[in-house]
Design a protein around this nucleic acid. Structure first.
Lengths: 197, 197
DNA sequence: CTGCAAAACTAACACTTATTAGTGGGAAAC
DNA sequence: GTTTCCCACTAATAAGTGTTAGTTTTGCAG
């Protein structure tokens, strides 16, 4: 009788969530069945329910873990004593790195959160809104201090965040440039696009 | 007995595809059932099949119509006698305008194409790849002519295209700035980020 | 008014969906 | 050696999936 392999000293629930992240990214939440997931984990579908409560719960865990990571880093930056443009660059780099190294779950949190159900859905939506507002706040500070050119801050946030999510294409491309080079190029374009000149 | 309303002098198939675009964007392709779609059209699910061949066909129509529009405009720009940076700006503006006024279908083509099935899937993938390569080509010309700063062209393409898809957030936001202002802000940030200074 | 094609309907098909109940095996605790 | 508990199993459920067959209604052309 096969057992869920727990190579890295992670719980079996962790293994399920990791496999789910991969599948949700590849096929989307709705198009991924519990039987798909079970097969990838190496077990019957019903057995998954010894470790998780529902398909919905898996998505919740993925989304809120990611959200917490980003919120934590944002707060860290808000409290740091650097220029606005440097804060922004740090946050951008954090997003890029997360998207590179934590690809599956970050991408799922970004694209599949719509399939959350209330009350988690509305909770997630407000978290998302608050995050963007605070990010826009940093930009507005930078504009006041004339570090950043006069632009609509929410639009800048929108560009930043969505540009980063484009790293999915990088992951899929055959001849990719190195992760470091990718990061530098993205920072160069986006930060220079914002900087007051 | 209700009939599919065909207000604008469009065919009934058109009405179905438009409603489908709306639903596919809101809930995703997989999470939208033919019964959902039928209800929104105001008809029984089976009746849809008098106008379309399959659910898959709807997605195909949406994706390839959008793809053709963008490919056509790209070719127009490639043949125009302007600087590379101007070409790029025009294409960017076209993307923005399409995303603003043709929101539903453009967004679906961008996000839901994965659910196409072969041979349409591989066809779409190559079209997508070619489009990006040719866009990168324009950027590389701009770099050679020193109009554009030395960056990795594919990365710039990735940023441009994904930044534009962020307009979905703009559509959903409560207090939106005007479409014109949105366009100008996006062009300011992205084009300035690319321009050699 | 009649006839005909377009397009709506109902009913049903064959699967797939997430999830639950109940069973049994295997390993660790005593 | 026995008990206990974790966990994977089989079997089943009720609801939902895209789609087809066959029938009835609609609205327009003659």
């Amino acid at each position: 009788m096969p057992t869920i392999k727990t190579n890295r000293n992670s719980t079996k629930k962790e293994v399920i969530i990791n496999k789910a992240s991969k599948l949700f990214r590849e096929k989307g939440f709705s198009a991924t069945s519990m039987r798909d997931l079970a097969e990838n984990v190496g077990v019957e579908a019903a057995s998954l329910y010894n470790h998780i409560q529902s398909k919905a719960e898996i998505l919740q865990e993925i989304c809120f873990r990611v959200a917490n990571q980003f919120m934590t880093y944002l707060e860290e930056m808000e409290n740091s004593k650097t220029s606005s443009i440097t804060k922004l660059e740090s946050i951008l780099r954090f997003h890029i790195q997360q998207m590179i190294h934590n690809y599956e779950s970050v991408h799922v949190a970004d694209r599949e959160w719509k399939h959350l159900t209330d009350p988690y859905l509305s909770n997630y939506k407000t978290q998302r809104k608050v995050y963007r507002q605070r990010l826009a706040g940093i930009i507005e500070q930078g504009i006041q201090k004339k570090e950043i050119k006069k632009i609509d801050a929410p639009t800048a946030v929108l560009i930043m965040l969505h540009a980063v999510s484009g790293i999915e294409s990088w992951h899929r491309s055959k001849q990719k440039i190195s992760a470091e080079l990718l990061e530098e190029n993205m920072v160069m374009i986006l930060v220079d696009g914002l900087r007051a000149s």
